[in-house]
C-alpha cells in the first residue's frame, strides 16, 4: 500500500475474502482475498470472523419469489483465516469456515459442518508512482475444496458445491497519498466436477444424465471498491460493489429445487470497516465489521449479510515488528 500500513492489512483480506464466503454456499467470488494489501515478510495475521446472512426471497431463474417451505433462510458461519508474508511480495493465505444453515419454516432441515478450505497465493507484481499516488497490480491464485463430506444436492441448505475450484484474479489499485484508494478486481473460477447423492438427474433444456457426476459451470467475479484510511490510518472504510457470473448452467424451473450447476449470478453492495489497534510490542489487533446487500440475482437468494471479527498480527520470522 501507499500508506504506511503495509503490514496491517490482513484484515482487509480477511474482510473481503470472508465476506464473500458467507454470501454463497461455495461461491465463486468468495473466499478470495480480494484486496491489495500485502503482509511483510515474516508477518502472520490470523483472524476469526463470524458471519450471518439471511434471505426470505430468492430468484427462481429470473423470477423473484418467496417459499413457504423455507420461510427465512439463514446461514451463520465462523471462519478462521491466516495471511502470511512469505516475502514482502508474496503472501500465502488460508481459510476454513464452519457453517450452519437453517430454514424458519417448512419440512426441510438445515445442515452444519465445515465447508470448503481455501489457500491463496497473492503477489505484488507491479507498483508504479503516478502523480500523487501509485498504481499497483496484484495477481492472486487460489484453490478451494470441500473440507467435509457434506451433502451437495441439497441446495439451498447444502454447505457448498463439493467441487474444487481454482481461481485466478487480477487486482488493480490506485492509491492516492491522501489516503483514499480505488480498487478493481476481476477473477475467473475454474470448477471441477462434483458428485451428488444420486446416479441419475435431469438438466432442463438438456436432458438425462446417467451419472452421479455433475459438470459444474465456471464463473467470473468482479469487484469495485472505494476506500479510505481515516483517523490517522487507524480506520479503514470501504464501499464495494461486486458480483459473480456463472458461465452457463440451467435456471431453476417453476417450483423446482435448485441444483448445484444452476446458473447463479448476483451483484451486491457492501460497506466494511476495520479499526487497527497497535499493541506497542509490534503486534496489531484489529476489529472488523461489515455488511452486504444483494441487489440483483439469478437462482440465488437475495441475502443480507453481516459480519464481524478480530484479527491478530505478529511476526513469526524476519523482522518482529510491524511497520504500522
Amino acid at each position: 500500500m501507499y500508506f504506511n500500513m503495509n503490514s496491517n492489512s490482513l484484515k482487509t483480506l480477511v474482510v473481503s475474502g470472508l465476506l464473500f464466503m458467507l454470501a454463497i454456499p461455495k461461491t465463486a467470488i468468495s473466499q478470495t482475498p480480494n484486496d491489495a494489501i500485502m503482509m511483510e515478510k515474516g508477518q502472520l495475521c490470523v483472524a476469526a470472523i463470524y458471519g450471518h446472512d439471511s434471505w426470505d426471497e430468492y430468484w427462481e431463474g429470473t423470477r423473484k419469489r418467496s417459499n413457504g417451505n423455507i420461510g427465512t433462510f439463514t446461514r451463520q458461519s465462523v471462519m478462521g483465516m491466516f495471511s502470511l508474508g512469505i516475502t514482502d511480495k508474496i503472501n500465502l493465505l488460508g481459510g476454513l469456515p464452519w457453517m450452519k444453515t437453517a430454514p424458519s419454516a417448512g419440512q426441510m432441515k438445515g445442515v452444519k459442518g465445515l465447508q470448503d478450505w481455501g489457500l491463496w497465493l497473492k503477489a505484488k507484481a507491479v507498483e508504479v508512482p503516478i502523480g500523487k499516488g501509485s498504481i499497483g497490480l496484484y495477481p492472486v491464485i487460489g484453490l478451494t475444496g470441500p473440507a467435509s463430506n457434506y451433502a451437495v444436492d441439497y441446495l439451498p441448505f447444502a454447505l457448498g458445491f463439493g467441487a474444487y475450484e481454482l481461481m485466478g484474479r487480477g487486482i488493480v489499485i490506485y492509491e492516492h497519498e491522501k489516503g483514499f484508494y480505488l480498487r478493481g478486481s476481476y477473477g475467473y473460477h475454474l470448477r471441477s466436477n462434483t458428485e451428488i447423492e444420486r446416479d441419475y438427474y435431469y438438466i432442463p433444456n438438456s436432458g438425462n444424465v446417467y451419472s452421479s457426476t455433475v459438470d459444474m459451470p465456471n464463473a467470473t467475479s468482479f469487484s469495485a471498491t472505494l476506500g479510505a484510511m481515516l483517523l490517522k490510518n487507524n480506520l479503514k472504510a470501504e464501499a464495494t460493489y461486486e458480483g459473480m457470473n456463472t458461465l452457463g448452467g440451467a435456471d431453476i424451473r417453476l417450483h423446482d429445487m435448485p441444483f448445484p450447476s444452476n446458473n447463479m449470478d448476483m451483484t451486491r453492495a457492501g460497506l466494511n470497516l476495520q479499526y487497527y489497534i497497535p499493541l506497542g510490542n509490534g503486534h496489531i489487533i484489529s476489529v472488523i465489521a461489515g455488511g452486504w446487500q444483494v441487489l440483483t440475482g439469478r437462482n440465488m437468494g437475495q441475502s443480507t449479510t453481516y459480519m464481524g471479527g478480530l484479527t491478530y498480527q505478529f511476526g513469526v520470522f524476519g523482522k518482529k515488528n510491524a511497520t504500522n
Binding site: 511480495k89 508474496i90 497465493l121 503477489a123 507484481a125 495477481p139 491464485i141 484453490l143 474444487y164 481454482l166 485466478g168 475454474l190 471441477s192 466436477n193 438438456s206 436432458g207 438425462n208 444424465v209 446417467y210 451419472s211 457426476t213 455433475v214 459438470d215
Partner: peptide
C-alpha cells in the same frame, strides 16, 4: 512472479483436462 504464473497455467490445464463428458 513469472514462475508463479507458469505454475498457475499448468495447474489450470490439468484441472480442466480431468473432466470428461457425462453419459446422457
Amino acid at each position: 512472479i513469472f514462475s508463479f504464473g507458469i505454475v498457475a497455467l499448468v495447474v489450470l490445464t490439468v484441472f480442466q483436462a480431468c473432466e470428461k463428458d457425462l453419459p446422457t
